[in-house]
Nucleic acid binder design. Structure first.
Lengths: 109, 109
DNA sequence: CTTATTTACTCTACTCTGTAGAGTATTATT
DNA sequence: AATAATACTCTACAGAGTAGAGTAAATAAG
């Protein structure tokens, strides 16, 4: 592809990582997206998207140590890369520009 | 799919239709997206996306009469449906919610 | 009128993104 | 040893993004 696209779901996943902060791992990211978008998110969709975003170089991850709780498996923590932040900023800027001046039209249906 | 996704490009195309208004047809829509996003848009991508959006019921179209100019073929004019406006509003609301509070973080990279 | 030019749109083909169902791995508890 | 809880993976397929090349229909030029 000439220019890699940032899908709506990928966008939400990336924003969730920023919002959750240092504790951003699979489950907490899913919960953040669900809480803010009102949609349900399957684990498969989330983890696959996380892997793809990492392959594109927009996020990075690190496997941590297990935690001492029942089922406390090792978690993989995620964070944005500089390239990811740049891409997110671009996408946001374009949408804000396009929305500008027509918000009323859209909001009033 | 449980819930149809609205891709980034689809989103831009729909917004361009609103922005251009009554004269929204293939070429003017492409120009509007290019002018506001800074990216180039191929005709194939635009027309295929327009067709897909219409199949999903988010936009509607009408073939008009030819205009009296060289190459003035009949144009197909596009407009949003109520469902399209609703979907656009939802997507915008979710993104604004997610961006809320982290705009600074994103903007400062 | 036949060819060229312009504008608008379509076909085909392929990669990337979105999604879920089911399964695996690793940890603590009973 | 069996059970339960948490975190993550595999497989498969439909939907979205993209471009190269082609078609269609209009006016203009010769």
């Amino acid at each position: 592809m000439a220019r890699q696209s940032l899908g709506e779901f990928e966008h939400l996943i990336m924003l969730a990582i920023v919002r959750v902060g240092p504790d951003a791992y699979g489950v907490s990211i899913i919960e953040e997206v669900e809480a803010n978008s009102g949609r349900s998110v399957s684990q498969a969709a989330a983890y696959l998207t996380l892997r793809r975003l990492e392959e594109k170089g927009w996020i990075k991850s690190k496997l941590a140590d297990p935690t001492p709780e029942r089922g406390g498996r090792a978690k993989r923590y995620f964070g944005l890369t500089q390239a990811g932040i740049k891409r997110l900023r671009e996408s946001r800027a374009t949408l804000l520009t396009m929305w500008d001046g027509i918000a009323t039209e859209i909001d009033e249906g």
